[in-house]
Computed example of a mutant assay.
Amino acid sequence: MTELSDVFEGFTGRDWQTGEEGTVRIAMVGLGWWTKEKAMPAVERSELCETTVLVSSDEERAMAVADQHETVVEGLTYEGFHDGKAREEYDAVYIATPNAVHLEYAATAAEFDKAILCEKPMEATVERAEELVEACESVPLMIAYRMHTEPAVRRARELVREGFIGDPVAIHGAMTQRLLEMNPDTDQWRLDPDLAGYGASVMDLGIYPLNTARFVLDRDPQSVGASMHSSHEAFADVADERASFRVDFPDGVSTVCTASQNAAQSSHLRITGTEGELELDPVFFPDEPRKLRVRRGDVDATLDFDQRSQMTEEFDYFADRVLSETEPHPDGEHGLVDMRALEAIYEAAESDATVSL
């Protein structure tokens, strides 16, 4: 069994890095606040990639943002992107559009033989996600689950693998935020089922504890149950202003999660085993300082560590895989497991029944 001191030593080390040198040039597809405030600054901090092309609905807007960044050489409309304009100026694309249009940009990028980093969830429905994976068979496709490169989550996974907490028994996870304080417009895509997919809270937030539980356990779900509630008028078109759901894994391990787009900001993941417990709190929001608490017997330690930018780690991992010509993970097939689980969670809430996967 791994000694606790061994895990804490080199806590933020990149155990995934191959050491390949070079620079991956990225086209950012979609210029919403997430791209401008999170993704682009993350790439500016990157060791292995740079932003060279911006793609937006408005060329003037794209060029205005481009003028603020030294490495960006071209601003395109979506039509220009599909037409292949400036295709020699980038090696890979990052897709951060509304969920329901990920497919069309991924398909075009694959046609141009570009590597793809696609935001989660990978599409709005299972059927469209399956089309996306099929369209990208010939190019590297990675789904942007940044928890997979978050040092605290990777160390928790290592402790579970090495038996530090004994056999896993249960996971409790939560992610909540006040969406309307972030964007008061009630006519936004996250509240539109045609663009967001099956719902608002589980699709956008609940996927974090769901996928991170999968990653930490290294197992895929077998069945789900769920309940949902919406009362605020802004959430009239979606079932899940707030939601709770259960995900059953092999060997009797259950994950219970809550998610809400209309609650105080909070995020945590607690992994309980037969011999001990791990707690990540906070964990899912990129700007909060992550902590890992480890408990077993007389040991009760909370580790504060030098924080890594979750987004920069994700982009550097993706670029490392492109440079080393190594298949990235999580890939499209991994993302499809989540899409099928998400569909089942909404079905379980509507039917008030357990749904098998």
Rank of each mutant, 00 (worst) to 15 (best):
residue 233 E to S: 10
residue 245 F to C: 03
residue 37 E to Y: 03
residue 270 R to E: 13
residue 63 M to V: 14
residue 291 K to T: 14
residue 327 E to L: 01
residue 293 R to Y: 12
residue 52 T to D: 02
residue 338 D to C: 06
residue 125 T to E: 14
residue 329 H to N: 01
residue 175 M to T: 04
residue 14 R to N: 09
residue 263 A to T: 07
residue 101 V to K: 06
residue 42 A to L: 06
residue 187 D to G: 08
residue 323 L to E: 04
residue 74 E to Y: 07
residue 208 Y to T: 07
residue 229 H to F: 11
residue 43 V to F: 02
residue 341 A to R: 04
residue 206 G to C: 05
residue 323 L to D: 02
residue 38 K to N: 13
residue 11 F to I: 05
residue 53 V to Q: 07
residue 301 A to F: 15
residue 350 E to F: 10
residue 234 A to Y: 05
residue 136 C to T: 11
residue 121 P to F: 12
residue 162 E to F: 00
residue 195 L to W: 14
residue 149 T to A: 00
residue 17 Q to V: 14
residue 246 R to S: 13
residue 248 D to Y: 00
residue 56 S to P: 03
residue 119 E to S: 14
residue 118 C to G: 03
residue 141 L to V: 06
residue 40 M to T: 06
residue 151 P to N: 08
residue 44 E to F: 02
residue 140 P to N: 07
residue 183 N to L: 10
residue 173 G to L: 03
residue 121 P to T: 15
residue 56 S to H: 07
residue 258 T to Y: 08
residue 319 A to P: 03
residue 105 Y to E: 09
residue 339 M to K: 08
residue 84 G to V: 11
residue 76 L to D: 09
residue 347 E to R: 15
residue 297 G to N: 09
residue 132 L to E: 13
residue 185 D to F: 09
residue 143 I to P: 00
residue 40 M to W: 06
residue 125 T to I: 14
residue 260 S to E: 08
residue 19 G to C: 07
residue 57 S to R: 15
residue 263 A to R: 15
residue 250 P to W: 02
residue 287 D to E: 15
residue 238 V to R: 04
residue 328 P to L: 05
residue 67 D to C: 01
residue 12 T to N: 11
residue 148 H to L: 10
residue 23 T to Y: 00
residue 169 V to M: 12
residue 180 L to W: 05
residue 115 A to M: 06
residue 321 R to Y: 00
residue 330 P to M: 05
residue 86 A to I: 04
residue 161 R to E: 15
residue 41 P to C: 05
residue 345 I to Q: 11
residue 175 M to W: 05
residue 204 D to Y: 09
residue 143 I to H: 02
residue 113 D to S: 09
residue 324 S to G: 03
residue 332 G to E: 12
residue 288 E to L: 14
residue 22 G to D: 01
residue 92 A to E: 08
residue 275 E to N: 08
residue 202 V to E: 07
residue 300 D to V: 10
residue 183 N to H: 13
residue 100 A to P: 00
residue 340 R to E: 12
residue 158 E to R: 13
residue 335 G to I: 05
residue 286 P to V: 10
residue 38 K to H: 15
residue 235 F to Q: 11
residue 132 L to V: 11
residue 203 M to C: 06
residue 329 H to T: 12
residue 47 E to V: 00
residue 27 A to H: 01
residue 276 G to A: 07
residue 229 H to D: 15
residue 71 T to I: 04
residue 33 W to C: 00
residue 190 R to K: 15
residue 70 E to P: 00
residue 1 M to Y: 12
residue 87 R to T: 14
residue 145 Y to D: 13
residue 252 G to V: 04
residue 6 D to Y: 11
residue 214 R to C: 13
residue 144 A to S: 15
residue 15 D to T: 13
residue 267 S to Y: 04
residue 285 F to H: 09
residue 222 Q to T: 13
residue 102 H to Q: 04
residue 250 P to R: 02
residue 274 T to H: 00
residue 68 Q to R: 07
residue 52 T to S: 09
residue 206 G to K: 07
residue 346 Y to R: 02
residue 104 E to H: 02
residue 177 Q to V: 15
residue 269 L to E: 10
residue 72 V to Q: 08
residue 61 R to E: 15
residue 133 V to R: 02
residue 160 V to Q: 09
residue 321 R to E: 01
residue 16 W to T: 03
residue 109 A to E: 03
residue 188 Q to G: 08
residue 114 K to A: 07
residue 74 E to I: 00
residue 4 L to G: 05
